[in-house]
Simulated scan of single mutants.
Amino acid sequence: MPIYGLWVINKAGGLVYQRNFADGLAQLTSNEYLVLAGTLHGIHAITSRLSPIGSSSGAQVIEGETFKMTILLTATATKFVLLTSLSETTADAVLQKVYEIYSDAVMKNPFHTPEMPIRSEGFDTRITALIGNGS
């Protein structure tokens, strides 16, 4: 039940963190990841307005034939996206822990500028401890 990758998308739709953890996903260029993050941001915005019974926070899980994307939308509109196998059952809990690590290691860092790429060794180290080695 592998976790393939983690994305962090800022409130404007920009990819501020991307990391792969297991083989199985296509290898993409950094520009392709940026385009995918922007597209997912748009899809998420559209799905938040499609609810037939009132307001919605948007798509929370998107499934493909061989993987799924689980999305955690924070109060500050930052999106955490976990790409996993279809059989992964702990994605929500993992995303919540990633958000806690982000809050502690990134947002408390006085040298980090909000909405900019995450360049924190402490964040990377704690994500590796939580999920595993990545490429």
Rank of each mutant, 00 (worst) to 15 (best):
D92M: 11
D92A: 12
D92R: 13
D92Q: 13
A93F: 13
A93R: 15
A93L: 08
A93Y: 13
V94D: 07
V94I: 08
V94S: 03
L95C: 09
L95M: 10
Q96F: 08
K97S: 04
K97A: 03
K97L: 03
K97G: 05
K97Q: 03
V98F: 02
V98M: 01
Y99A: 15
Y99D: 14
Y99G: 02
I101D: 03
I101V: 05
I101N: 01
I101C: 02
Y102T: 08
Y102I: 11
S103V: 15
S103Y: 08
D104M: 13
D104N: 14
D104V: 14
A105G: 08
A105C: 14
V106A: 06
V106Y: 02
V106D: 01
V106I: 09
M107D: 11
K108Q: 08
K108F: 03
K108Y: 09
N109P: 01
N109A: 01
N109H: 11
P110Y: 09
P110M: 11
P110D: 04
F111Q: 07
F111K: 10
H112G: 01
H112D: 04
T113F: 15
M116Q: 10
M116V: 11
M116W: 05
P117K: 00
P117G: 04
I118W: 00
R119W: 02
S120M: 00
S120F: 02
E121K: 07
E121W: 09
E121S: 10
E121H: 09
E121T: 14
G122H: 10
